[in-house]
Structures are given as C-alpha cells and as structure tokens.
Design a protein around this nucleic acid. Sequence first.
DNA 1: TTTTGTGCAAACTTTTTGCAGATTG
DNA 2: CAATCTGCAAAAAGTTTGCACAAAA
Lengths: 174, 174
Amino acid sequence: MIAATQSNHPLAGIPPKSEVSNLEAACVRLRQAQMRVTKPRISILEALIRRETPISIEQLHHDLNESSCDLVTVYRCLAAFEELGLVRRSFQHNGTGLYEFAHASRSRHYHVLCKVCGKSEPVEYFSVEGMERMLTERGFTQLSHIVEFFGICPTCQLTAPARQNSPTISSESA
Amino acid sequence: MIAATQSNHPLAGIPPKSEVSNLEAACVRLRQAQMRVTKPRISILEALIRRETPISIEQLHHDLNESSCDLVTVYRCLAAFEELGLVRRSFQHNGTGLYEFAHASRSRHYHVLCKVCGKSEPVEYFSVEGMERMLTERGFTQLSHIVEFFGICPTCQLTAPARQNSPTISSESA
DNA sequence: TTTTGTGCAAACTTTTTGCAGATTG
DNA sequence: CAATCTGCAAAAAGTTTGCACAAAA
C-alpha cells in the first residue's frame, strides 16, 4: 500500500530496531515450539508487526501481496501463532476474526470498532463503564461491548487429551 | 426438552412471575418498535429467558423443537432483538455467535467459556486481571480473553444514513 | 386490509480439511 | 533425510437474501 518511505536517508526502508527484535523474538518462540521459520510465516509476522490495529485475515492476505502465500496458509499460521501467544484474536461486530501482534513489551490494550466502517482504534482500558462513558465523549454512539474469557475448565482437563501448549498462553494477564 | 414438571402442584408448569414479566416487558418493547408479537418471537424469547447461559442459534433452534420455527427466523429474530437491546450477543472462541436474554433488572455479567466443551459459566466482573486470577483459582487453564467495544464513529454518523434505533441500546452501561 | 413476519430455497462468506509436493532443520 | 509446512481443491459451518405466502394489528 504505502510505498517505501520516500526519503533517501540511509536508514530509509530499514525497519526500526524494535520491529526486528519483535520478529526475532517471535521466531525464537516458533523454534521453541519446534515449528519452522518459513517464508510465509515471516511475512505474516512482519505484516502484523507493521500494523498497529487488528486486521482481518482476508485483509492481511491482501497486504501480503496475495501471491506471497495462500489464504489457507494465513489461516493456519494465525491459528498457530495464537496458540503460541504471538498474536491475539478479537472479533468484529459480525463475528469475523481480527488479529493483531501481541507485542510482548507493550501493555495490553483494547479497541473500539465502528459498526459501520469497521475501523478500529485502540483505547486505554479502565473499566467497562468508564470505557463507554469515555467513548461517548469521543463522539461514538450506539455503544455496546463484549467481554469474554476463555479457558479450559477443570472437567475437560481431566477428560480431554488436551494438547499441551507451549509456556502459558495465559501469561498475558501476568 | 424438559417435560413439564412432574409434580401435580397447582403451579406446576406455570412459569415464575419474573419470567412472565420479562416476556411481557419484551413484548412491550417490540410493540414500541412497531414490531409484531408473533408466535416464533414469543417462543424464542421464552426459551432465552428460561436459559441462564448464552446459547448458540443452532442450539436455540433445537431447544425450540425445530419444528416450531425455521432456523432463518431465529437468525432474523435475534438480530432484531439485539437491535432492540432485548438480547446480548457474545462469541465463542471460534467466532460463532451466542445470545442471551438481557435481563433488565439484573446487572450485567460476563462469562468464561471452556475452549474444549464450550460450556459457559457466568462470572462476576471485577477487572480483567482479577478475573483471570480468579478463574485460575477456580481451576481453569490456558486462559485468554477478548474485550471489544462497538459503536458508530463520529465520521460514520455524518455520512451513513444510520437507521436510528429505539431508545439507547447503549443504556447497558448506565 | 394493510403491513409485517415466516418458511423455503439458494447464495455467500468465512473457516476447515485432505493430500501431494515443496521446504526447513 | 525426516519432519513439517504449503498450495490447491473441495467441503463444511455459519449466516444472509429473495420471494411468495401467512399472520398480526
């Protein structure tokens, strides 16, 4: 989309160090999980790191240049990345998935998504009530929200084989 | 599903007053919105009021006896009910929608959904962090969560025709 | 009687699966 | 070389739409 930065500064086009380390950390994570660091995976991670807001799979695939890898691969990679805690999934109002890179350093934030244009903006999190009050002040109308927690219940831990995932995925709340 | 209560107490089979008033309030709401109070709508509302936990559309349709109304009607009714604020939608970990009756009297609560069996339990809401800590103590593992706010952004309010909905849907945060 | 809702069939969108060939470590 | 990924094709889920008939006000 955005053509490479138009300056001819020596660092033009070279991603900031933080992006590199994010990517590297992610690759380490992949190897830890005995997963391979492939070209599609790298491009997907790069694209996610570049972005600041959550993005749909379709759109991500498009950003990737379409030809660089198959849509199915994007689905598979994101599912894997989510299991590893490398990305976070959220939802649009219609239930379609959105993904964003889970920056290890940054504290977790949340989003407002416009029900009409679908654009999302990050927002600081205080409390549900404070949040909606603040969004009203920002000019949003017809506010609603969902808060959902997922986990594996005690019963299923006993019965299901439960593919044990890498380190705690739940570490996001640490 | 559950055959009429097996006792022969005079009140057997008669729903508690609260259910009735919930249903009545909902019907008033429908009429306010110039919507008709039809048999399918009543059964859907009844089924939702009976339930305590969020339910998928498929499952709701099943609870309804399948034959009592078409699956498409369930979709349409729930979408309409959501617009009116009569029900709340949430999501399973895979993105499929879940609905629950928005009891006007009760304060809003949230859920934990098991990633394996999908069962949901209501939980008191404190804060995201406290929530996950508490769920860990309850024996849940591999916790994750989503918090998403939806609304109509200032820009779209100017451009889009924006079918003006009934009283504030957003009143849930009042 | 007019307006609104429903059922049915079919389309669509999003996501998942199977498998052979390509790629990584 | 062995294990793991990817692409392609096809299927499965979940959800939406169009239209004629049915039901509610």
